[in-house]
Computed example of a mutant assay.
Amino acid sequence: MNELKQLMPVSALKEDAKVAFYKKTYTHLAMAVLLFVVVEWIFFQIPAVVNFAFSLTEGWLWLVMLGGFMFATNYAERMAMKTKDKNKHYLGLLLYVVAEAFIFIPLIGIAMSISESQSGDSSGLLTQAGIMTLALFTGLSAIVLLTKKDFSFLRSILTVGFFIALGLILAGVLFGFNLGLWFSVGMVILAAGSILYQTSNMVHNYEEDQYVAASLGLFASLMLLFWYILSIFMRD
């Protein structure tokens, strides 16, 4: 009976068990966001780390940074999904948050510089983008949680979309052209679809003990949305 219970998706649980799972997932998501802010702050207190991150944005080195981030993402997801060891779940989430914080250094550094020059407040653009991101994330999550609609059909669309986006990023780096505003808009739409998909996964496909993995998936989509909303705000 215990094995059957472990294999049960959240959608098959009683209402109180579902609510408990959702609370755990979103609590861990909030903790991941807070940890991201703390780690980012620590990184910016270490000039060597900031300089190293910025140095990786030059030419083909950005591809190395992107490749390292994708490797860390894949490894963290496997740790959170394919083991029953809770310690590895948390280690996977921690690894992913640190990787996100590192790859965000150049974008946040440039955003702070632009904001400082425009209004004298280095956090202005970050605050605006953060509010917009949380508003969109909350609205998209509510759609899934209230309607209980299964958005698993988005998986193939998102896969194709991300491969196209990766190809455009590679081409942009190799041939030296700017992807422009419309690429960022397209990525915001892709990130929105990812949020719908990940929230639907949380509701329909995860098991009761996989709340850390569920929070990691939601965090990844949230940060992707924040990246491109911030990129759009920086163009204004």
Rank of each mutant, 00 (worst) to 15 (best):
residue 174 L to I: 13
residue 168 L to Q: 01
residue 202 M to F: 04
residue 169 I to K: 08
residue 170 L to G: 04
residue 169 I to G: 10
residue 205 N to E: 04
residue 214 A to T: 05
residue 192 A to L: 02
residue 168 L to P: 09
residue 178 N to R: 07
residue 191 A to G: 12
residue 164 I to Q: 12
residue 161 G to V: 00
residue 179 L to Q: 03
residue 163 F to P: 09
residue 203 V to A: 14
residue 162 F to P: 02
residue 208 E to C: 15
residue 195 I to M: 05
residue 180 G to E: 00
residue 165 A to R: 01
residue 200 S to D: 06
residue 204 H to S: 11
residue 172 G to F: 07
residue 196 L to S: 12
residue 203 V to E: 07
residue 207 E to G: 15
residue 177 F to D: 14
residue 184 S to D: 09
residue 188 V to D: 08
residue 172 G to R: 03
residue 173 V to S: 06
residue 172 G to T: 07
residue 170 L to R: 01
residue 193 G to M: 09
residue 167 G to A: 01
residue 184 S to Q: 07
residue 202 M to Q: 06
residue 161 G to P: 01
residue 193 G to S: 09
residue 202 M to R: 00
residue 191 A to S: 10
residue 167 G to T: 01
residue 181 L to S: 13
residue 182 W to V: 12
residue 193 G to A: 13
residue 164 I to H: 10
residue 205 N to K: 05
residue 171 A to S: 10
residue 212 V to W: 04
residue 206 Y to E: 07
residue 189 I to G: 10
residue 209 D to S: 12
residue 219 F to K: 10
residue 188 V to M: 04
residue 213 A to C: 14
residue 177 F to H: 12
residue 176 G to I: 01
residue 175 F to L: 15
residue 185 V to R: 00
residue 188 V to P: 07
residue 189 I to C: 10
residue 205 N to H: 03
residue 207 E to V: 06
residue 161 G to Q: 02
residue 214 A to W: 02
residue 215 S to W: 02
residue 175 F to A: 14
residue 181 L to D: 07
residue 211 Y to A: 08
residue 204 H to W: 09
residue 190 L to A: 11
residue 165 A to Q: 00
residue 194 S to D: 11
residue 211 Y to Q: 10
residue 182 W to K: 09
residue 178 N to W: 07
residue 175 F to I: 13
residue 173 V to Q: 04
residue 164 I to S: 14
residue 209 D to W: 09
residue 202 M to D: 01
residue 188 V to C: 12
residue 205 N to I: 03
residue 186 G to C: 05
residue 218 L to N: 10
residue 216 L to I: 04
residue 183 F to W: 04
residue 216 L to R: 12
residue 207 E to D: 13
residue 185 V to P: 06
residue 179 L to M: 08
residue 163 F to E: 01
residue 194 S to G: 15
residue 180 G to H: 02
residue 186 G to I: 06
residue 166 L to H: 03
residue 185 V to C: 15
residue 194 S to W: 00
residue 188 V to E: 06
residue 182 W to E: 05
residue 219 F to R: 08
residue 208 E to M: 14
residue 176 G to K: 02
residue 211 Y to E: 08
residue 208 E to S: 15
residue 206 Y to S: 09
residue 181 L to Y: 10
residue 202 M to H: 06
residue 202 M to I: 08
residue 187 M to A: 08
residue 185 V to K: 03
residue 213 A to P: 12
residue 182 W to S: 13
residue 196 L to H: 13
residue 167 G to N: 03
residue 174 L to W: 11
residue 211 Y to H: 14
residue 215 S to T: 05
residue 213 A to E: 11
residue 215 S to L: 05
residue 164 I to D: 12
residue 213 A to L: 09
residue 180 G to V: 03
residue 166 L to V: 08
residue 167 G to Y: 00
residue 214 A to I: 01
residue 201 N to G: 15
residue 208 E to V: 15
residue 208 E to A: 15
residue 195 I to H: 00
residue 180 G to T: 04
residue 208 E to Y: 15
residue 174 L to Q: 12
residue 216 L to F: 12
residue 160 V to R: 10
residue 191 A to D: 03
residue 170 L to D: 02
residue 195 I to C: 05
residue 207 E to S: 15
residue 204 H to R: 03
residue 216 L to H: 13
residue 179 L to R: 04
residue 190 L to I: 11
residue 209 D to R: 10
residue 208 E to K: 08
residue 218 L to V: 05
residue 196 L to N: 14
residue 175 F to T: 15
residue 170 L to E: 05
residue 202 M to K: 01
residue 213 A to Q: 07
residue 166 L to I: 12
residue 209 D to M: 09
